[in-house]
Design a protein around this nucleic acid. Structure first.
Lengths: 355, 355
DNA sequence: TTCTGAAATTGGAACGTTCCAATAAACGAT
DNA sequence: ATCGTTTATTGGAACGTTCCAATTTCAGAA
């Protein structure tokens, strides 16, 4: 009895499996599996023939089925809180570099600072058998949000933003010391009234950086004016707004320490709009040393935290943890070094002194 | 006979399955499955009890096993060729927005312009059962590189960089018309000698944009000097280098059309280093309208292609294709509109005319 | 009480792979 | 030829889920 509906060719893409390959190649499914995994000893000609058959029939390996036995796939999840910040793009590049060498691939997802989305994304990654997850936590991530991940035995590493009171590996920059260092640099240049600008109070990173700022101010007997501590979203627009507010003050500061490079660049823009020459009329410094800092004009004095290096470190630590799940959590505090460029005015001062 | 090694607690994280939940909750695995999928009718109290048990034992859903029957997971792969270009970050944000609403999650991967890596990443995504893939192809992707993806029936959409002669859905900006538009704008401002700068000849996008440039030049009888057509990597450094070369020419152009915003910003920097005031001494324009274009100083005149919008469109088209695999490939050419800011000098000219 | 239909639950057969133990084939050495 | 040994190959039993058909339970009607 002939089938009436003449569906021309492969209308319905039937999934081709290892068994069909085996049949077509005239071997057993076990042999095909052997070829696929490259584990056993299979005669070169047989291997070749199987490979050709797979090619001919358009075979797709089903990792899900395979993981049913293995339960360890070579993917790692990278959860980023803000893809539009180039800092995280650079961080991601470092992560990928190391993972790739170890034969892993990183699947990234963006949470856009939403805890709900973060939860959803991490669940997906776990369900797909990710070997581990590197998490740059969204703004108000609570420690208990991570319990379920760790309960299930997925390797987890928190990066960039420390989560206090969570017993999990961390990779973060030396925020306090870095902020202290750059503040001291401004003080050495003779500044008395210095503002701290950008970031939200609730962010741990801001607390650390602001702490470093305060430490340097107090250690040198500087007076800290609460009016010169301004919050803003950690974005260019945030920096622009906060700086505009600062400049409308009666008693302006002569120098500004910004939460990060992005806000610093926003602040520089605001200063320029007010007719100030950054580096001469006012000093503005940032934090992170993203590639933008080098390229902006005047070049931004900042604290280099080497985002790529942090990414590499994070990946390496995670891999270690994947390979030895029993290991204790381990943390890495990345160095934060002063990079003196033009926006702080040090260069101009040196010129003047020489001239 | 007592076990000697007193492994305290859950040293060996045994994977907990649906069956163990069933046993612990005193129901059958089928019931647990019903709870999980929410498909059948299960008594509220039973559901509650099962849910609690899952929570208590730290159950992780195994999507791989489930897909063995279903063979369609709600993930979409997003393959990006250059994560460090903010254009792609914005594109990705658009993609995510739409996918999320449809209950999908996007897993991104960066190829860093490597075809090998691109292949590896796409293979991984397919193996994990991605429902579809949005590909921003790496520089020298050949059409035949994509054959195997399409053969296996995975929905595929190519974005941003058109691949000629590939029968697959595309979402790309209107490069030719956009470039033509912005060139004409410079011509209307009175420029005669105009350079085209950045990007590599082999890139289709460059061919299109340069084509638009040429069209406008020739339509208005302008003379096109081959010395004013410079290649560079599509990066800030590339733009800086190419612009430096242009400025060392004996017969400098008075205006420069750049391949994209990133190279234009590099070019602006080079001009500034040569003591030129951009927008007064020389006109520089870009392409893309990334958020940087607005923020740089002087603000960049450019062509808005709305990367977020393109991302949204790409996601929508891919979803359509996932839901109807038999549908014909469909393409969307996004509008490219002139955005006049300061770097082309139009604003200063208007001021002068008014004054 | 018995019957009836709906609601709730269940065992077992897939799904596509890997792994193990077992078998078959090939090859020298006796 | 016969034996061991190495090299190739192979069925079948997992793995954790869903789906189907079958069964049990439950309310209300007769």
């Amino acid at each position: 009895m002939p089938q009436p509906q003449g569906s021309k060719g492969q209308d319905t893409k039937k999934k081709v499996t290892i068994i069909e390959i085996a049949d077509a190649a005239g071997v057993s499914k076990s042999t095909v599996s052997l070829v696929l995994t490259g584990r056993g000893a299979v005669k070169p000609e047989t291997r070749q023939h199987v490979l050709e058959t797979m090619d001919r029939l358009g075979y797709v390996y089903n990792r899900g089925a395979a993981n049913l036995r293995n339960a360890q796939s070579r993917i790692v999840g990278l959860v980023l809180n803000d893809l539009s910040n180039p800092f995280f793009a650079e961080f991601a590049i470092g992560v990928e570099k190391v993972l790739q060498m170890a034969g892993y691939v990183a699947f990234m997802a963006n949470t856009a600072e939403s805890v709900v989305r973060q939860e959803q994304v991490m669940r997906m990654m776990r369900e797909h058998g990710a070997g581990g997850i590197i998490l740059c936590p969204a703004l108000d991530t609570r420690p208990e949000h991570l319990d379920w991940v760790r309960a299930a035995g997925t390797a987890l590493l928190v990066a960039i933003r420390r989560l206090p009171d969570v017993a999990v590996s961390h990779v973060v920059p030396e925020n306090l010391a870095g902020a202290s260092r750059i503040t001291r640099h401004l003080i050495n240049l003779g500044h008395e009234r210095i503002a701290f600008l950008g970031g939200m109070h609730s962010m741990v990173v801001r607390q650390e950086r602001h702490g470093g700022f305060l430490a340097a101010m107090e250690a040198t007997g500087r007076n800290v004016d609460p009016a010169l501590n301004l919050e803003s979203m950690p974005t260019r627009d945030g920096g622009f707004g906060a700086m505009s507010a600062v400049l409308s003050l009666a008693d302006r500061p002569t120098a500004v320490v910004c939460y990060n490079d992005v806000t610093a660049i926003g602040a520089m823009l605001a200063a320029a709009r007010h007719g100030l020459v950054v580096g001469r009329d006012i000093a503005i410094v940032g934090f992170d040393d993203t590639s933008e800092a080098r390229h902006v004009s005047p070049a931004l004095t900042t604290v280099a935290v080497d985002p790529v290096g942090l990414g590499e470190r994070a990946a390496a630590l995670l891999l270690k943890q994947i390979n030895d799940p029993a290991a204790e959590p381990e943390s890495f505090i990345g160095p934060a070094n002063l990079v003196i460029r033009e926006s702080c005015g040090a260069y101009q001062r040196a010129l003047a002194a020489a001239g």
